[in-house]
Structures are given as structure tokens and as C-alpha cells.
Design a protein around this nucleic acid. Structure first.
Lengths: 225, 225
DNA sequence: TGACAAAAGTCATCAGATGACTTGATGAAA
DNA sequence: TTTCATCAAGTCATCTGATGACTTTTGTCA
């Protein structure tokens, strides 16, 4: 029994169960002891066991089937990965997001359809340029355009990861330095669409890179100060 | 956004609280009503409320402070993102991983040091070519090389995401089609190191792309059959 | 053997109670 | 006035016992 410096009984119980799984002692598909047994083994009440199991179910480790039992679903801790990715520096996160943008534009150029191009132009027109007013809403419109570019790649994995970054980045950026980062204008955005339309992957990724460069340098000077 | 057709009371309660948060009705930092009030509002027992709160705490939405109350931490569900990324198709996952490889090589070329190049060459030598034997172990050595390339980018966010994909991809690939996907040879790997050493980002990313192309076509034909 | 009913096992939920912790108010001492 | 100790109320943490709902197994009967 490892003692965590500061953890509730429920967290300790969850950790104990988790380690049984990650260590492989409880294999995937295995059935856990029932709640009464677990509560006896872990020396906590059944209510606490249930809360611990709830957490592990939410994390994808376990699955409960009423009337049948609780079973091991997976032994990989995906929530840990996400947690660590969130703890990386803002610049790394932004750079990673930029990498996704670049490669998505490349794929979009390879796979674009007239419909996609039309949609992108419409989203860009809706976005417009920022001329004061509700900045929050403008950022949302801007994000919608960028997410559409990612969607144009046709790759759902890229979309999911991008969602993760756009959430964390906008949370951080908007609160701290939003007003000081230069927003690329309409032409820079239009260049990306044009490059995708030509079907040239190198041109598309280059357009995104040109687009991102000034934002990066602004971010770098801000983070240094 | 999938709504579960059949959800337990706890899940319903968690969803109800979650929507209060994501909709913004309960702002970040706000204090939730106490457990008794929540149980009355949601028409469930306090135990159910506690299990729901546990889940939301595990997902990063809430924070409980004993003796004080329960507070809103964040309004974005970040833990779900990676979970959804894991559910995307194998091809999308592989393509996303490839995108990370390409952009990491580009960054590595911009930031490489002699030490990094030396390490990469050593890892490649240790990897060797596959000549039968323990395939599992060879894949591990191969993965070590690729992760070193990502590490050479100096971007921790990319490393974390790559870790996520390498885990899921090797889980899937090794079990299904490992023997039928062509493994790029030593020269293809060496090309990547050389390109990084020259400091030319375009050459580095192009080398990775050339490296990945045959794997992709093999994967595509396999997935079609 | 096969189908059906009964029973046992298990999770889901509820209700009540006690302990631990935080916060704010109160009042005494410096 | 300021500082500190003490107290009381509010809240989450945990435990206990009980009931309902669902699944699996077992036993029975045709």
C-alpha cells in the first residue's frame, strides 16, 4: 500500500484498483471482486468503493454491468497523457497546434472538393476582420474557420487533437495576451483557401506557415518579457 | 456529441451539472450548491450526487474542498478528447502520427545539436534491420528511434501526443497486420538523420514523407481488402 | 434434451448518521 | 486598535444498513 502525501480514501482506493490493472494482475476482460469484497480488501466502505469505481469507469479503465459485475476494459491510462500535454508550455502547445494546421492544410489540398472550398470561403466571409466589438465572438468565428480547415483534411484524429489544443489555447491566450497578438488579416486566410483549391499540398502547408510566422514571433517576444 | 440512450441516474446527474458548466450558467470559480441542495434539485440521493461529482472532478470540471464546498475548475472537457481520438479509424490515427513525425523532423532540423545527431545515429545502429527473432523487441527499438526524432524537436506537447498514438497504434497494428506492413530499411532512416543534420527543415520533412509513403500505401491496400 | 421458473449474486440507489475540515464571528489579551 | 484563541455553523468525507433492478445460474418439469 503506497501512501500518497495527500489523497482521500476514494482516491487511494481508485489508485489501488488502477495499479492492479496497469500491473496486469487484473487482465483486460477480467471480472473484479464484488463491491463487498473490494470494500473488505481495501478497508473502506462500499460507498467509497463505488465512488472509486465511478472514477475508473469515467477514465475508461472499468465497465460496470448491473446485476453482473465490474469488468476491466483497458489497461492504458489515456487521461494521464492528456494531463501531461496540458502541462506543457504555452509555446509548445501553440507550436503543436501549428503543426496540425500545416499538415491538415496539406491533406486538405490533396482531398479538397468544390463544396469544401465554398464552405471555407463562406466561413471566412462570416468571420470578417476584427473592428472592435465582442472580441470573444470574433475569436469564435476565427476558430470556426480554422477548424473547418482541419475538417477539410478529412482526418478525425487530427480534428480531435485540434479540439483539445484550441480549447486550452483559447483559455490561456484570451485571458492573457489576446489583445497583443497580431491577428492575420483576411488576405492571409484567403491565401490558405486558394492554396488548398489549387490542390498543391506544398503550397497549402507553406501558406499556413506564412500565416503563423508573425503570430509566433509575437508570442516569442511576449513570452520573453 | 453522443448522447447515451440509456444512462444511469449518476450519469444523468453528471450530465446535468456538466451542462450547467459548459453553458456558462455556472462560471469558472463559482461555488456549487451543497450536496443536499443538489440532491434536492436533481431529485436524486446525496450518494448519487457524490458519485456524479466524483466523475466531474476526475474529468477536471470540478474541485471539492472539504469543509468549504465544490467549485467549478474548468468549462472544457479535455479528457474526452484523447478518448475520442482513440476511437478514430486506424488510418486516421496513423496519418496523424505521420503528421507529427513530419513536423517534428522539421523542427528538429531547425534546432538540432551535434549531440542529438550522435544520439540518433546510435539509436539507429542499435535498432538494426529486422532479421527475424523477437519482433516485439524490434518494434520497441524502432519506436525508440522515432520517439528520439520527436524529442529532437524540443517540443514536449508533440512528444506527449506522439506517446499517445504510439501506444494505441502499436496496440492495434502489432496485433493485426504487423507482419504485412513493409518496414522501411536503414537507409530510409539514415536519410532522416542526414536531413536533420543539414538543418534544412524542408528536406527533413520531405525525408519523413518519403519514409512514410510506402507504409501508407501498404496500409491502404490492407484496409481495403 | 429443451424450455421455463425460481433463486442467488451483483450493481444501483436511497436514507441516516458521524467525523473532519473550513470559515466567520466573538471576545479576551497585548 | 490589533492580534490571537475559541466557538459555532456549514460543508464535504466516510460509514452503515436497506431496498430495488438486473443478470446469471440452477433446478424443475415436460
Amino acid at each position: 500500500m503506497q501512501t500518497l502525501s495527500k489523497s482521500s480514501l476514494t482516491e487511494s482506493a481508485a489508485q489501488a484498483i488502477r495499479s492492479e490493472i496497469t500491473s496486469g494482475r487484473w487482465a483486460i476482460g477480467a471480472k473484479l471482486p464484488n463491491e463487498a469484497s473490494l470494500s473488505a480488501t481495501l478497508s473502506v466502505s462500499r460507498g467509497t468503493v463505488r465512488e472509486a469505481v465511478r472514477v475508473l469507469v469515467a477514465q475508461g479503465f472499468l465497465e460496470t454491468r448491473q446485476g453482473s459485475g465490474t469488468y476491466v476494459l483497458s489497461s492504458t491510462d489515456t487521461s494521464k497523457t492528456f494531463d501531461m500535454a496540458r502541462r506543457t508550455s504555452l509555446r509548445d502547445q501553440f507550436e503543436a497546434r501549428c503543426a496540425l494546421d500545416v499538415e491538415s492544410a496539406r491533406l486538405a489540398a490533396l482531398r479538397h472538393t468544390p463544396q469544401v472550398i465554398t464552405d471555407l470561403r463562406r466561413l471566412l466571409a462570416e468571420r470578417g476582420n476584427y473592428k472592435g466589438g465582442d472580441r470573444q465572438e470574433f475569436i469564435a468565428r476565427d476558430l470556426a474557420f480554422h477548424k473547418a480547415v482541419i475538417a477539410a483534411s478529412g482526418n478525425r484524429a487530427l480534428m480531435e487533437i485540434y479540439d483539445f489544443f484550441s480549447a486550452t489555447i483559447s483559455e490561456t491566450i484570451e485571458a492573457t495576451i489576446s489583445a497583443e497578438v497580431p491577428e492575420p488579416d483576411m488576405q492571409a486566410h484567403a491565401d490558405i483557401i486558394d492554396a488548398i483549391e489549387t490542390g498543391n499540398p506544398d503550397a497549402a502547408s507553406a501558406a499556413v506557415r506564412r500565416f503563423m510566422a508573425p503570430v509566433f514571433s509575437a508570442l516569442d517576444t511576449l513570452l520573453q518579457s
